[in-house]
Amino acid sequence: MTSAIRFSGVSRHYGDVRAVDNVDLDIAEGEFFAMLGPSGSGKTTSLRLIAGFERPTAGEIRIFGQVAQGIPPYRRNVNTVFQDYALFPHLNVRDNVAYGLMVAGQPKAQRHGAADGALEMVALTGYGDRKPSELSGGQRQRVALARALVNEPKALLLDEPLGALDLKLREQMQEELKSLQRSLGITFIFVTHDQGEALSMADRVAVFNEGRIVQIGAPETIYFRPETPFVADFVGSSNVLPPEFVAQLTGRKAHGALRPEAVHLSEQGHSATVRSVSFLGAATRIGIRIGDVPMTMLLPKSDTFPKVGDTVTVNWAAEDLHVMDRA
């Protein structure tokens, strides 16, 4: 596979603030790639570096093999779906979508036809004459998508595109984006702070923290085999076990990650005190403490739950405890 976007030692510093710090990255053509991390972790800055809104202070970015240095945003064949959509308030929906074609000099009839086609693709046929202010959040999001896609970009950059939508709409849009990406076959680069969103949609996920990429891999790898305590904690709130505790269990002195659902009540195992019990619907979350190591466990629906203050015995399969040698 050819490389769509490649970062080699890319940094973006603002004075002492290292928004992006020496990042190496290789995104393949046709890939659905997610950049995941808490706010301020450098994921959005990385996206803006690709789009050309920011300039790297060090390193090199290549877009489909070409060095991006000195190339303004309007000459890069990538398009962005903005977090706030950034629809032009003075233009109607059709002219918003046709904007890229208009500035490229396409005649009106042709670009309006293309815009209507793009609107159809995002299920907004008939909305062309409305102003963006007359649309709902979800509809605006689709217009932003159509406006970016009508230019036939080689890569689509999405900056928290679902952040402003409510939960139900967000899940629906996740499905649609995924299938859109499959049918178009172009590279999608998707920035999010929502680990569920990243895991469910992306082919690969890069986890950002403090301007650096801490782990890149397939969603399953990130989820089950986190390499650092940060990833274990941020991606799906694993129990991060201290090295001393892990050493007692495995003989290897390193942080361990243990998923809450991997812990279960058992006849034999570790004696634990129940600290909290929260009913979550499909499961119940129990906060326990083994010695001085706090932990959470998720118990499936059951008739009997331990109560706060109970002493219980818990255990897990040895292979579920993932030792993070790297940290």
Binding site: G52, F53, Y74, R75, T80, F82, F88, Y99, N151
Partner: peptide
């Protein structure tokens, strides 16, 4: 972001001024 959106969609500085900034 409006100016960024315009440039992202292929408009150079002058086109961005003419079609996005000036109307707004």
């Amino acid at each position: 972001s409006l100016v960024e959106a315009s440039m992202d969609l292929g408009a150079n500085s002058f086109q961005t001024f003419r079609y996005v900034i000036l109307p707004n």
